[in-house]
Design a protein around this nucleic acid. Structure first.
Lengths: 218, 218
DNA sequence: AAACTGTTATATCGGGTTGATATATCGGAG
DNA sequence: CTCCGATATATCAACCCGATATAACAGTTT
């Protein structure tokens, strides 16, 4: 059994929920819109797609109605295109494999998204990025779990720094303090999200509000 | 050839520079004092130690003779125990392998620390944590490179968000904006470090000052 | 038309990391 | 004495990263 949630598979399924794509397009899309959060390499993306296909979570579908691939110069290019299209499997004019998500994939996406055992920074950020597919209860639990974890980590780090028996490398404390500040910033952010979530539960018709007061900063 | 700098090996060497330690102690030390920055697992630490030993960068100071590779299914547990007891035993005499850094190891540490090709968050934080072993020039270059990288990433992310042709998942923008804020915070911090470094270059006798005005925050 | 340069597109490899698990010793509590 | 938790080393499958190979296509230059 796979250990916990595989973030990459989660992202792939999440993106394929929006529209069918092939591997190259998936990577482009990831680095364009999620580049600050995560980053996939070829050596992880294609195996992930293969795994998902083996599970039946995605399947190669017919090429999207793409830009008409009309050869501008006579029939030679056309012949090649026809030859390529004659091969088995749904592929576009080029050697593309366009994947679509299946019902199994949708179920797997939900299962991964709602899997509580995810703890690391990246996994949290990715789950939160797709949090509109979770129900409010799960979202709240995820936020509170994350808050508790960060709180504990910062306290532990501060405790360990204060009882430093040995003189640490001079730069270590500097880096640690900055990390603690970042964690505190994360904490405040998450508290804010929790508060918003709680108030939106009391008034269920309220829309999710993307905070606008975050715009004025360096 | 190993690609670029291996952060784990760098940390191991950096800690062994302070004092001799065995694997368990190294991990304890890491999670205690660097836990916010990085985290090593057994499956990476022991192989790293083995690699370093093979390179001659570290050597066992109080090593027991290695236990032969007897298949675990065999009934030779007793023999192993006896074999282990045959070593000399100053204090405790447990099955510990205490490692110390060699001259080769020190040279490797410097080489890794001054290797410019490191780019990811963790690698930067670790190098900075040991930055007192770098000369001022290298330190400045590292800081400036990092600043430029983050600047470019944030700008790129903002660019991509602004020309969003499709409606993204509603939570994605929320997460991205927070990551951009964190990056801006990192940026300001690094700019500050650069300024301090530059001013300390102009007056070479000045000691490295660990910033004290960072203390009053949430 | 040929030759180039850059983008699109898939795939694989070595080496390293993770999280789990196995094994065994030791110190202290009950 | 026995149980239990901390100490201590090691290995495994699955997975990820960075680099590299291969090739079709597009646009421009020669």
């Amino acid at each position: 059994m796979a250990t916990g949630t595989n973030s990459l598979e989660l992202v792939v399924l999440g993106l394929l929920k929006e529209q069918d794509m092939h591997g190259y397009e998936l990577k482009k899309r990831m680095t364009e819109s999620l580049g600050l959060i995560m980053h996939a390499s070829w050596g992880s993306l294609y195996p992930a797609l293969a795994r998902l296909e083996a599970k039946g979570a995605v399947k190669a579908v017919e090429a999207r109605p793409a830009i008409p691939n009309i050869p501008m110069t006579g029939s030679l290019g056309g012949e090649r295109a026809v030859f390529r299209l004659s091969g088995e499997g749904p592929r576009g004019s080029r050697n593309k494999k366009v994947y679509g998500i299946t019902d199994i994939g949708s179920a797997l996406f939900s299962a991964m998204l709602n899997n509580d055992s995810e703890i690391d920074e990246k996994g949290f950020a990715i789950r939160l990025a797709f949090a509109n597919h979770m129900d409010s209860e799960k979202r709240l639990k995820m936020l509170r779990d994350r808050r508790d974890l960060i709180l504990e980590r910062v306290k532990s780090s501060r405790r360990n720094s204060e009882k430093k028996r040995f003189a640490l490398e001079p730069y270590v404390e500097l880096v640690l303090e900055h990390f603690r500040l970042n964690n505190s910033s994360d904490l405040a952010w998450i508290e804010d999200l929790i508060a918003k979530e709680e108030s939106s539960i009391q008034t269920p018709e309220t829309e999710i509000m993307v905070s606008q007061e975050v715009q004025d900063n360096l």
